[in-house]
Computed example of a mutant assay.
Amino acid sequence: MIDERRGVLYPERMPRFHRLPPEPAAGHLVAWFWIPEWELGAGERSRQDVVAYPALNLVVDPSGVQLVGATTTATHRDLTGCGWAVGALLRPAGAAALTDRPADLRDSWTAVPAPELLGPVGDAMGRTDENRLGTAVTIMSRWLVERAGPLTDAGRQANAMSELLMTDAEVRTAEQAAARLAVSLRTLQRMTHRYVGVPPLAMIRRRRLQEAAQRLRDEPDADLSALAAELGYADHAHLTGDFRAVLGIVPSGYRQQL
Rank of each mutant, 00 (worst) to 15 (best):
E146T: 15
T167W: 04
D123G: 04
N57Q: 11
V137S: 07
V246K: 02
A182C: 07
L105I: 01
Y53D: 10
G83C: 07
R45I: 14
D168M: 09
D153W: 06
L105D: 07
G41P: 03
Q66C: 05
A85G: 12
V198M: 00
D49V: 15
L188N: 08
L231V: 14
S108D: 11
T192Y: 05
S162T: 12
R19H: 11
R215G: 04
M1D: 11
A169K: 06
A136E: 05
G155Q: 02
R217C: 01
N131C: 10
L58H: 00
S162V: 07
L247E: 13
D49P: 04
A42H: 04
I139Q: 03
H238I: 11
A226L: 08
I139G: 07
Y254A: 00
R190Q: 15
A226M: 05
R156D: 14
T72D: 00
A93N: 08
G64M: 03
E170A: 14
A70M: 08
E23I: 09
V183D: 04
R47W: 02
L239Q: 12
G155S: 09
Q189T: 15
A234T: 15
A158T: 13
G119E: 14
L181D: 10
G197L: 01
A174H: 06
H18C: 09
C82Q: 10
L90D: 02
R186S: 13
A237V: 15
T72Q: 01
D61M: 05
G81Q: 08
L185M: 07
L209G: 12
S108E: 04
A182E: 12
F243M: 15
R13H: 06
N159M: 10
G149F: 05
P220F: 00
Q157N: 10
A74Q: 07
R244V: 15
E4K: 05
Q256R: 08
S252Q: 14
Y233P: 03
A95S: 10
L118Y: 03
L201V: 12
E175Y: 06
G232L: 12
L224P: 06
L231P: 01
A226D: 13
Q257T: 14
G155M: 02
R16V: 08
S46H: 08
T173Q: 03
A55R: 03
L181A: 05
A96Y: 03
R207V: 00
H18P: 03
V8G: 01
E37K: 04
F17V: 00
G241T: 15
A222C: 09
L151T: 13
L105C: 11
D49T: 15
A154M: 06
L9C: 08
L185V: 15
Q157I: 14
